[in-house]
């Protein structure tokens, strides 16, 4: 029912694309990160919590129809519904059913609770399209609760040494996740403007976050002492950041699992915190779908597809897309202002 063409993942029966990378008429968007929600579609369909971010980033005048999870709509006989993907708030898997055949496009996803998004829901299907950002067995992410605990300990220790703590993460998703788990009894929380803008959307749509101040012209950087600052990766090596010295730099990313990437980034601390599935989660999710046909997109495609064939005897193929997954270094082409990590 679905095919992959030069524009994206296409359903001919419903004449709709999922996360297309070229302008098309009808687009269903799994989530609002810039490699999945792109500019120029005539009509968008997205989850109610993804739409505000898309309007903020792609323009208030875009044409978006919103639906909640598990709220099927039918287009030319194809029943289409969104289901939680657990990647970021408002992220969805797209389920399409036509004449008994079921496909699921999972976009980006992870298993488990992150405190800010509805957890991933396994859906039985025949055809499953999966990412493979961390599709190698060396990626075994630690329990996120431990990581949040480490972040707070790190902040406390830096504060004792009279230093600020600057923590870098994607403005959309990662930043709210970090923010929500900070312990405000340690000190003040500050945000970069790009983070604050998204936080406001989160708070309007979902719930308040711990009190934080946006660093703008009203704030004297000298008054920030022993506090934590949440910023997007693009803030690294900017004059904006230098004003917050002395500080320690922490980076939150699944790539921080590898010592080489940690050292290359030159951060003081790398926290292994990802919004993508690790090796174990990928395998669990795929087994739970019961799908026979697996299409492996962005990540370690060929290796992961071979593993699915060898280990589980699945009909797994790799598919070229323009999705980038979790980026450690500044990507070449993205529209969002949170380019980086």
């Amino acid at each position: 029912m679905l095919t992959f063409n030069q524009n994206g993942i296409y359903c001919a029966q419903a004449d709709v694309y999922i996360d297309p990378w070229k302008p098309v008429d009808n687009a269903i968007i799994t989530h609002a990160h810039s490699d999945h929600a792109r500019w120029g579609m005539k009509k968008y369909l997205a989850h109610i919590h993804a739409a505000p971010v898309m309007r903020y980033r792609l323009g208030q005048d875009i044409n978006v129809q919103t639906v909640d999870y598990n709220q099927p709509i039918t287009i030319n006989g194809v029943q289409i519904s969104l289901h939680p993907a657990g990647h970021i708030w408002g992220s969805a898997q797209v389920r399409l059913e036509y004449k008994g055949e079921i496909w699921v496009v999972s976009g980006d996803y992870k298993l488990g609770e992150d405190g800010i998004s509805v957890p991933f829901e396994p859906i039985r299907c025949h055809h499953f399209i999966t990412e493979s950002t961390f599709g190698l067995p060396v990626y075994n992410f630690p329990d996120p609760a431990t990581v949040h605990h480490d972040i707070n300990d790190w902040w406390r220790k830096n504060r004792e040494e009279g230093k600020n703590s600057v923590i870098l993460g994607y403005a959309l998703g990662k930043a709210q996740r970090i923010h929500k788990h900070l312990d405000p009894s340690i000190g003040n929380i500050y945000t970069h403007g790009a983070v604050d803008n998204v936080n406001k959307l989160y708070e309007a749509a979902i719930e308040p976050l711990p009190y934080a101040r946006r660093i703008d012209s009203s704030i004297n950087p000298k008054d920030i002492k022993g506090d934590i600052i949440i910023a997007p990766p693009s803030a690294e090596n900017t004059p904006w950041l230098r004003k917050l010295q002395p500080y320690k730099l922490g980076i939150c990313s699944g790539w921080m699992q590898l010592r080489g990437t940690r050292r290359r980034r030159g951060a003081d601390r790398g926290f292994v915190l990802s919004d993508h599935a690790d090796w174990g989660q990928l395998n669990t999710a795929i087994k739970q779908t019961g799908a026979e046909h697996i299409y492996v997109t962005h990540g370690y495609k060929s290796v992961y597809a071979k593993w699915l064939q060898d280990a589980y005897g699945l009909n797994a193929t790799e598919v070229e897309t323009l999705y980038t997954g979790e980026q450690l270094d500044e990507p070449e082409t993205t529209g969002g202002e949170d380019a980086g990590i």
Partner: peptide, 24 residues
């Protein structure tokens, strides 16, 4: 319980055998 080919692929990515083994 990792196939040798997958271990090799992982090693190429990690770039350090000692680390690859500890992660696996």
């Amino acid at each position: 319980g990792t196939p040798v080919w997958l271990l090799e692929e992982s090693y190429h990515v990690v770039g350090d055998l000692a680390e690859t083994i500890s992660l696996l």
